[in-house]
Write a protein that binds this DNA or RNA. Structure first.
Lengths: 225, 225
DNA sequence: TAGATTGTTAATCGATTAACAATC
DNA sequence: TAGATTGTTAATCGATTAACAATC
């Protein structure tokens, strides 16, 4: 279990608790806000309020990264940003591939938000030979059959599904095969991925259906309570 | 605690475990697949494979809905679809409002996928007076200052943030105030919502950063293991 | 009946939280 | 020192899982 990388191994190579990983970006955002205001030190209580959690959770989460706080004082904002930033991918850009060059696919390709978050759209693929070769936002559309190759060339780590529902599962299978680590599915269907550790997936259709449950329950509560 | 609705109260008014609610749409999708193939009965083991979980979890989850299975036989596909569908919002359309009528906002408005999932785009708002009054996909753009009113009129239950990063938190605050139950944030920033029960939020920026963690860790594992 | 499969129990695991000793 | 705040402990809670009695 000897570490060979050039920074402490425990925080990057070993697993942080899943629930902690999910909250790190939220802390990061709060720290960015503080840094913009010129604040240099933050207590767990303050950071907790910014993140919408309680202080005990903040301290517990941060303790997994190491003992970076100072008792009686708090945490150094800049240093903590550096540590969390390093853990969350080292701030290196993680290229994105978009599957499907219809209206949505093209719009997402042109959307600056991904690039601004450090996730540039590096590739677009489509099944229609007619659109293959065209350019969208400076990126040439390739054929979906070449997805594995395209992902390898561009080093894509995120796949975005912007296909019709019927093509979504096939696109997911190819993305998984090609080695992406995260999938965002816009198609109006739920797709499944192998039960591999670390592959993260968000189905818009699932999110929307879960909402349906809450809305339904709220209605029932109104009716009965 | 007497129920006054016209179906058994326990499954709709009382809370199902959060983890179960998250899986219900996945089961639903598997059942749809089976129904399309003409299959009328399914065992927990089969449904588990379709959903990518284990059979014990399927049985436990379904047991919260009631004793709808038959020992030695399995579950009736159609009946189970009906029950889960009813719990997940009763299959009634849940209108969506899009905040921001830029390239992304317009593309999402035109995207058929939301409507196909039962979540039609019912309203679009923007801060720019120049675009207010224009139509996108049959929906007239309204001013963001009228968001509360717009949400009330259209009965919007989902808000989609398609604004620049700087405007995202303000849009979220207004959506929460207006009473939507779910927020999907495309802006390249993390936003916070009050810690109310049931309000569901997905930050694309957070999802992408979490991916960064997994990718980073995978790199570390490759290097050290 | 014999075989199959559910529904439930109980053990286990991971996440949350309050409390407080350590310590700046 | 006195006050403040971390880092950690231990209790609690919810979710997962294997096992199996119930029963079709």
């Amino acid at each position: 279990m000897a570490a060979s990388s050039d920074y402490p191994a425990d925080t990057s190579a070993s697993s942080l608790p899943e629930a902690t990983v999910v909250r790190l970006p939220v802390y990061f955002r709060g720290l960015v806000e503080l840094a913009e205001e010129g604040v240099t030190t933050v207590a767990s209580q303050q950071l907790a309020e910014l993140a919408g959690v309680n202080a005990a959770k903040v301290r517990k989460d941060l303790s997994y990264l190491g003992s970076y706080g100072t008792r009686g004082v708090g945490y150094d904002v800049g240093f903590l940003m550096l540590q969390i930033g390093r853990i969350l991918g080292g701030n290196e850009p993680a290229p994105v591939v978009i599957v499907g060059a219809g209206n949505l696919g093209k719009a997402l390709s042109r959307y600056d938000g991904f690039g601004a978050s450090g996730f540039p759209v590096a590739a677009i693929v489509d099944a229609d030979p007619v659109v293959v070769g065209r350019k969208v936002a400076g990126v040439t559309i390739r054929h979906v059959d070449d997805l594995h190759e395209v992902v390898g060339e561009a080093g894509c780590q995120v796949g975005i599904i912007a296909t019709p529902a019927a093509a979504a599962q096939g696109a997911v299978d190819r993305l998984v095969d090609a080695g992406v680590r995260s999938i965002l599915n816009f198609a109006p269907t739920v797709v499944t991925v192998p039960d591999d550790v670390g592959l993260r997936k968000v189905d818009l259709a699932t999110e929307l259906h879960i909402l349906g449950y809450y809305e339904h329950r709220r209605g029932a509560n109104r009716a009965t309570g």
